[in-house]
Amino acid sequence: MALYFGDLLPFSSLLLEGLWTALYITLVAMVAGSALGVFLYLGKVGPGKAVSIFCTCYIEAIRNTPLLVQLYLIYFALPALGINLEPIWAAVIGLTLNNAAYTAEIYRAGFESVPHGLREAGKALGMKNAQIVRYIVLLPATRNVFPALTNQLILLFLASSIGSIISLPELTNAIMSVSNTTYRTIEVLAVGGLLYLGVSALLSLASKRAETTLFRWAVGARV
């Protein structure tokens, strides 16, 4: 079977729109989810026992169930409660709620991996706990969190493909509809795959760049 990419040309704008939708829901879910993750993390490690248990249960429930099932719940089960969501909002909410649980764990790991000695040095200088967190722990923790967060961004972008099953016209959905129209399945999957790959590689490269410029102090440091 000969490969022929020419049949795809008329659908290039459909594919690009799909890519744009995928990027859009990824970015919204990343910003909203990582912000929500801050509250989940603070709730988990904070003094309130009930809040801490709630946050822990939430994080574990999200991390131990498939994203697909979570999305089904939002899109197919919520209408039974009278809540009807457009596919794009169902996808954004699903990815946000999912991402929040993962970022909360990333924050926890990042803060815990700041050497305990730094806190002790702050204490020994007479600093209060809030000052220690703000001036001593926050930046090294951010440095620890950064690579995992950018990795999470890429995973989220790839996970956005799951929006296709709730008929959200994102990239995977566009790939499937072009395939069904042209029967050029291999060609369109190859092109679509390359689009995912290209964007992921760009994100990865940009985050490496950002890491070296933002955290120049970390060269040779034990953090």
Partner: peptide, 11 residues
């Protein structure tokens, strides 16, 4: 206080 592992603030 001075510590065995220095504990300088790396950032």
């Amino acid at each position: 206080m001075v510590f065995q592992h220095f504990n300088l603030f790396p950032h």
